[in-house]
Write a protein that binds this DNA or RNA. Structure first.
Lengths: 335, 335
DNA sequence: TATCCCGATGTAACCGGTTACAGCAAGAGC
DNA sequence: GCTCTTGCTGTAACCGGTTACATCGGGATA
């Protein structure tokens, strides 16, 4: 047996559907006893309003669409956690769609039209053309770390260049010279900017950059560590473009009997929750992605309330020095 | 300017809306040149179909609702990752709703009606009455580790009792006797069952159970570790009801200069990705929550295809012995 | 008592799609 | 040339709600 509709309730309560709608939605112009009667009948029939139909007629869904590149790894999980927290505090539902690194995934944006009131898109590696092409026009959209786009959307931009530069400075201050950068995949905006910052700092200090390309996953870190271990003039620091790669390397160095940071310092980027839990704890740049996610929801909400917002808001990552680059202050004393 | 509707396209293309609908949905009974013309006009107007309206008339949303207790911590993130992977492989969207430990959150299930074709609910600590009350009837629903309910829904049940029992056996085999259990919050189904398994095994071996109650978060683990450290006859093993608490304790023990596992063994439950990355790597029971999530989506899909499924499927966690309980095989040699 | 006003209720249009059914034109068969 | 079929297209009902507007009845007022 299908679900009861408002018409079923109206029939059973012997009133019009308009009255049922008004009674259930708390409009004032309904006589008290009629309202109670309608509510009783609705409960008896197990009536649950059809939210889809409701949004259609109200042109309001109370939902926002979230597009992430991936859910693998803690970084995007953290982003989602931040978004989710703020969204449910505001009574907004979340419609998820991620493109698993596949550019075609951008098409799924089309399916969001009519289901959400606004969009939050995080897509550091997507072709802007593609994104724009499938972006339902006139849908408020907040971008996080996306490629430059013609559209004048509100955005969050991470100052990757300055942050990577600062990390290199930190490593140099800690006495390192042969600093290798394990980058993210080419074409990814964050990856490219971190490379730029790394190169700038190295060059400024008269050091020659050396870049290995990874994939932002643990495996890239492991593989890179193995590659470095055997080299004649071994690097004395590895700066990975994200924490997962750094941790992969950290573990691999450890297994191979190399001491971190004594033999080689390791630094990451993002400050995922895991970073402070590995041994030695990982030095990294804190992005605060959960906070950004939450703030993105706030901006979306403000726009939906009629606000105007096309600002580009810059996020400045903070250095979080931990034991993996600091020989003197081990957070975990040797066992 | 609002978005173009199918009527705008029809007007501009000088055909009826029915023809537009048919042309764009690839029905065969449309003349080829008409179809092309309609497609061209639609593209020119930037027409994107209104998915909400479409689902209303088709009574099919291609979305499934997901209710989780929380997104904090890796456990539910992993579950969501598994669900998401399978869902997007099948072209299903995900509507997220989590109740942040708040029982009232169950009401948000009502908002799913008319927006999703089915539900996946993971709620180890929710009052079944409440859940049933707000569960839109006749919506296919797969439950994961929920309290027993009258309804005959397809379910996944984790064999927590046997698993906790097996973990105690493992600790005893490793020579431990003063084994303390750090449990999850009372009322949580998983927590209660793990307590039961722990007690059963302890009693069987003539050991007296000792249970401290935690909250499934890292902080509980830290606090418990501090409490244990000062005691006269210190415990020689801590079995936490989930990995996050175990890791909190692990770190706290380390900081306090206690060697794990030499001075005290530590074991967790869940096998979150983090578990193998901490030092020493954490012994735990692998639940495979991402796989369960994926499988839940498959079951949902099968039901939507007309299948019948009211089975209770049991998940048997597997012991993953690692360095935190095995004095002899350290995965990370001392630095 | 007649008039006005006001609050409660019903009718019907609308949100943006899909599709059953009707209509219509062209080609086939006689 | 006339009917029958076939294939394309349009009309209108429907999905399940909301709400502008019309209607209706009763109390207040003159």
């Amino acid at each position: 047996m299908a679900h009861a509709t408002i018409r079923d309730v109206a029939r059973a309560a012997k009133v019009s559907i308009a009255t049922v709608s008004r009674a259930l939605n708390g409009h004032s112009n309904v006589r008290a006893n009629v309202r109670e009667h309608v509510q009783a009948v609705a409960t008896a029939l197990g009536y649950v309003p059809h939210t889809g139909a409701r949004s259609l007629s109200l042109a309001k869904t109370n939902a926002i669409g979230v597009m992430l590149p991936d859910l693998h790894g803690e970084f995007y999980s953290e982003a989602l956690r931040g978004i989710d927290g703020e969204a449910s505090a505001r009574g907004l539902q979340l419609l998820l769609s991620n493109m698993h690194g596949d550019q075609r995934g951008a098409e799924s944006l089309r399916f969001m039209r009519g289901r959400v009131d606004a969009l939050i898109i995080m897509a550091p590696d997507i072709d802007p053309e593609r994104l724009l092409a499938h972006l339902p026009a006139s849908l408020p959209t907040v971008l996080i770390s996306c490629p430059d786009m013609a559209a004048d959307h509100p955005q969050f931009r991470i100052d990757n260049t300055a942050a990577a530069d600062a990390m290199v400075e930190h490593l140099i201050a800690a006495g390192r010279r042969r600093i290798v950068h394990l980058s993210g995949p080419r074409g990814n905006r964050d990856a490219e900017e971190r490379i730029a910052g790394y190169c700038a700092a190295m060059t400024r200090h008269g050091l020659s950059p050396r870049i290995l390309t990874g994939n932002f996953d643990e495996e890239s870190g492991t593989a890179t560590a193995h590659a470095l271990i055997g080299e004649a003039e071994r690097a004395d620091a590895l700066f990975a473009a994200n924490d997962m790669m750094a941790i992969g390397a950290l573990v691999a160095f450890h297994r191979a009997g190399l001491a971190v940071p004594e033999d080689i310092a390791v630094a990451g980027f993002d400050d995922i929750p895991l970073a402070r839990l590995v041994t030695p704890a990982l030095t990294t740049m804190r992005v605060g992605i959960a906070e950004i996610g939450a703030e993105a929801v706030s901006r979306v909400a403000a726009i939906l309330d009629g606000g105007d917002d096309t600002e580009i808001r810059w996020v400045v990552p903070q250095l979080v020095p931990r034991a993996s680059t600091l020989a003197d202050t081990r957070e975990f004393p040797p066992a």
